[in-house]
């Protein structure tokens, strides 16, 4: 009998870790979207929410570091598995026809890369304020940092909006396959739930993207104003 290697070193083990880290990130993305929807309630609500988060620096930094580690783990494993998978078929087919693989599932690497670039852009833009220094932190009338004003300012810029919409496209595509796929990787399968599991990916992707895009477009189209 072959000596069993470490349980999470195997291809399935790595997939499991990818699925878990991915699901963690998905939970964050949902949370993030829900929080930002407060933009529709006006500057008071959103800025108050932002201040509440800032007022818990330890938790905030734990969350930030946790998220970054999850993302890093997810990406490293993705790269490892992709390289391995490339090696598994050294000579490509001359003709290739897919039968049932979804577009999203075939573009996971691309959508993942778009998503990664977008996240970097997003962090540099709104978190670090490097991309558009003109939107640097100001205080609102209540003395809270004016996150609301910053967002409204940012999404009036067509270039920024285009970047964010592209990012959302990547996010939607990625989640569309990822959520259902991760449930499969975690072994969730019961005849009674299969339709639910199948629907999970597209549903989550749709809701998250709709929520985020609603914010962006509402500002860009002037429905939400500064």
């Amino acid at each position: 009998m072959a000596h069993p290697s470490n349980h999470f070193q195997s291809s399935v083990g790595r997939k499991v870790v990818m699925a878990l880290s991915g699901l963690g990130l998905v939970l964050y993305v949902i949370f993030h979207m829900l929080g930002n929807l407060q933009v529709f309630e006006g500057s008071h609500a959103l800025n108050g929410y932002a201040t509440m988060l800032r007022d818990m620096p330890i938790l905030l930094w734990i969350a930030r570091i946790g998220l970054l580690s999850l993302a890093a783990l997810h990406i490293v494993l993705a790269i490892q598995l992709t390289l391995r998978n490339r090696r598994a078929r050294p000579v490509a087919y001359a003709v290739r026809e897919y039968r049932q693989a979804s577009f999203a599932s075939r573009t996971m690497a691309v959508s993942g890369l778009v998503l990664l670039l977008f996240i970097l852009f997003h962090l540099l833009h709104l978190t670090a304020g490097v991309i558009d220094p003109s939107s640097a932190d100001r205080l609102d009338t209540e003395g809270h940092r004016d996150v609301y004003g910053k967002i409204v300012h940012a999404f009036q810029n067509p270039f920024i909006v285009a970047c964010y919409l592209t990012g959302q496209l990547g996010l939607g595509l990625h989640l569309n396959h990822a959520v259902t796929s991760s449930l499969q990787t975690l072994g969730l399968e019961r005849a009674a739930f299969n339709r639910l599991i199948k629907a999970a990916g597209p549903t989550v992707a749709l809701l998250v993207v709709l929520g985020n895009v609603a914010i962006i477009l509402a500002i860009f189209l002037g429905i939400v104003r500064g």
Binding site: N85, S105, T185
Partner: peptide
């Protein structure tokens, strides 16, 4: 060990 890839859940 045999050099097969991992599952992408594409179901081809």
């Amino acid at each position: 060990r045999e050099g097969f890839g991992s599952c992408g859940n594409q179901y081809e």
